[in-house]
């Protein structure tokens, strides 16, 4: 469904705190907008949960509500200790999930 982009470093030194930036295309329909022609409310449809994992363990997550802008941007940090794989999951209210992965080598 949605297109996601992740900017995470590929390399880091042990103990470095790295910043991860993510972006996903999504209307984040708040359920408060009206169809201009019919005047009907456009039904709400948002991504309500974002989760970031490293080697399967969650280290950051966010609950999103109607106040989050369309095409949600999220940046956060991670303390790199060892090499492994990040996994980012966007969960939408209709149960759809978008998953993106990114590897990091820690020296």
């Amino acid at each position: 469904m949605a297109k996601a982009r992740v900017k995470a470093p590929k390399k880091a030194k042990a103990g470095d705190i790295v910043t991860i930036k993510t972006l996903i295309t999504h209307k984040m329909e708040s359920g408060r907008r009206k169809n201009k022609k019919t005047g009907e409310l456009i039904p709400r449809h948002i991504i309500d949960k974002f989760t970031a994992k490293f080697n399967g363990t969650e280290f950051f997550s966010a609950d999103w509500h109607g106040a989050v802008s369309a095409n949600p941007y999220m940046s956060f940090s991670y303390k790199a200790e060892k090499s492994g794989e990040f996994e980012f999951i966007w969960h939408d209210e209709k149960g759809e999930e978008t998953v993106k992965k990114s590897k990091i080598t820690v020296a």
Partner: peptide, 26 residues
């Protein structure tokens, strides 16, 4: 806003820093 809730960010010690950035509707 029409509703008080905006967003919640959950951190862990592995986050390294309790920093987060996002974009909101006001």
């Amino acid at each position: 806003n029409p509703a008080p809730e905006m967003a919640s960010f959950h951190f862990t010690p592995a986050s390294g820093r309790a920093n987060a950035a996002a974009r909101m509707r006001l």
